[in-house]
Write a protein that binds this DNA or RNA. Structure first.
Lengths: 332, 332
DNA sequence: CCTGGCACTCGATGATACCGACTGCTAACG
DNA sequence: CGTTAGCAGTCGGTATCATCGAGTGCCAGG
């Protein structure tokens, strides 16, 4: 599509724009890229790139700014070649060397790490691992009418739905716990039984059915979202309206989770501007990478930044952290 | 301290400034307050108020803007008289009528409600209720070396610390679960036993001791923070720097939690600007109210906004929501 | 095809003037 | 003596205008 020289020029424009956030002129391209031609030639090429939709001019006498198409070309051309500087990868390494403990905390720290080293907003979506098993299930009465079911999966996720029960005694609770334990513990969460065999005790059967239903619900919704570094958004954009819009999106967990799953489903690792499909994120780009625990997809980590974010660094960071996170979680 | 007229004028200035975010001139005071004097008289009074530190002039030919001292006087003068409009209190009522379910979700929705009806950033700090009891404790092995302890308190909080154990069999896990259950269930979290009696089985004793220590740690830190509506900060301030600073603070859970506890300890319900003791919050005000579950302090809800926030509304909202939340949680 | 040169465009910057909101002061008034 | 009308003065905000310069498109010559 683009010959070598156009491609070099385009990459140089994007690179430079990412660094300076200022429109890039032909002179700057000659100074920073490896093309050995005059600025006049670059001007001619840039006019073509503009006609092809890779660049635009904010106004006649300004330099060029990349369009989404321009960013897309840039990102595609650097796939796989991202790199982190030493201190960053050092930080990641030492973090995962020290990392331990419970899943929730682990993800919370990971999202903080990712945000800190890249100066962007980081997100982690933890999905219900399809193949994880139920490790434990227990009914805990909280009040006379409310009982909490505590269910732990092998991936370390704790579910805690509540059900309303007309007060039954401790024996019933214990019986239901035993019944559920027998039939659920050890089974994969995706192959949850539809119903439980009757026990002859009506109270036990009623409570057990309600509990099973609550467990099913809880296992289905469960996709937890962790966000960190939203404050970086205030540095990335100049107008408060943009910041407000982006923060609003970030607070809608459902939107973010489905956005990320959608991006992943489309086989992308980077979604630029309107590619996200979320209108207020027009000025943003999202870089994602799934992580795997024991060979199974377990969640996704991502970085959200302005379209002029440092893609090379973001891709490398996301790739490294997802790999390390998966490995650490697999080790348990 | 201030005579009736000065106080009326000062209140009018603050009220007006809260509404318009513009410096308030003597003319505007005459138009909006109930003082029946000329603007010249108001000017004289305002000069005195400025000398006394209640107001400042951004520049010579502008109206007056309240100082922190001015806001403080205003807030003190309306204590207890806050009011919500009908649709807002209606929303609160219908929310709590429908509200049910598990504590974590409950608090998450509450903080969202509070943020929505007031158009400010809302926070909820859930503290470990001192008198809540341990309802259940169980060891759940996740991997061969990591075991999770799931502990549920009567307030519905689930603690889930992990410990590392050199692989012991299921019998040991079961024995430790039984041991801990016997000695912990039913005791208040603040009167946790120091040690457990020996059982003669060395593995059981070792694991039990580790588990007890982990439980103690987890029970001690536990103050969860919920934040919603941070996007409103982008509407409250005009400069991105301010927004960034405030968002940064909001992401530091520890700072926010101790800020709120500190404000409460000082017996305040409103902390204005530097009264918060957190430098980047100089332009913010915090309105807080504790909530009680079964007569015991269980946490705090708060609203964070610019110093020119609507205090009357905020005080009323925080008071109403904390009362309702406490009542709903007490019912279970 | 490339390039030096050149006229041109247009945002950014800065100077200048003007408007208007608001003040402080003073003198008059009840 | 407190209050008020009137008035001169202050100063930020806005509009106007000229200037500057970065960057462009185009053309003619290599």
């Amino acid at each position: 599509m683009l010959d070598d020289r156009k491609s070099s020029i385009l990459r140089a424009v994007v690179q430079r724009y990412i660094e300076t956030a200022q429109p890039v002129g032909s002179g700057a391209v000659v100074a920073t890229s490896d093309v050995r031609v005059s600025s006049a030639t670059v001007r001619n090429e840039m006019a073509v790139l503009e006609a092809d939709g890779y660049l635009i001019q904010p106004h006649t006498s300004a330099g060029r700014v990349p369009t989404e198409k321009g960013y897309r070309f840039f990102v595609d051309s650097l796939k796989g070649r991202g790199s982190l500087d030493l201190s960053q990868s050092q930080q990641v390494r030492s973090f995962f060397a020290r990392a331990h403990g419970e899943l929730e905390n682990m993800l919370r720290s990971t999202v903080h790490l990712l945000s800190t080293i890249t100066d962007n907003t980081a997100v982690v979506v933890q999905e219900g691992s399809d193949r994880s098993q139920i490790r434990s299930v227990q009914l805990v009465p909280l009040t006379s009418t409310v009982t909490m079911i505590v269910l732990v999966t092998s991936s370390g996720v704790v579910h805690k739905p509540t059900i309303e029960v007309l007060d039954v005694g401790d024996e019933v609770t214990a019986a239901v716990t035993a019944l559920l334990s027998t039939h659920l513990v050890g089974t994969p969460v995706r192959r949850l039984v539809d119903s439980l065999p009757g026990t002859g005790n009506e109270d036990v059967d009623t409570v057990a059915a309600a509990a099973l239903e609550a467990v099913r619900c809880s296992l289905n919704d469960h996709a937890a979202l962790y966000v960190d570094g939203a404050a970086h958004m205030a540095e990335a954009f100049e107008t408060v309206e943009t910041i407000r819009d982006v923060l609003n999106i970030l607070e809608q967990q459902l939107v973010v989770v489905s956005l990320i799953q959608d991006v992943l489903d489309r086989g992308l690792t980077v979604a630029i501007g309107t590619e996200t499909g979320v209108e207020p994120l027009a000025g943003c780009a999202l870089v994602v990478a799934p992580y795997e625990v024991e060979g199974e997809h377990a969640g996704t980590i991502g970085l959200l930044g302005p379209t002029r974010m440092n893609y090379s660094e973001a891709l490398a960071a996301v790739a490294l952290v997802s790999r390390r996170l998966g490995r650490t979680l697999s080790e348990g």
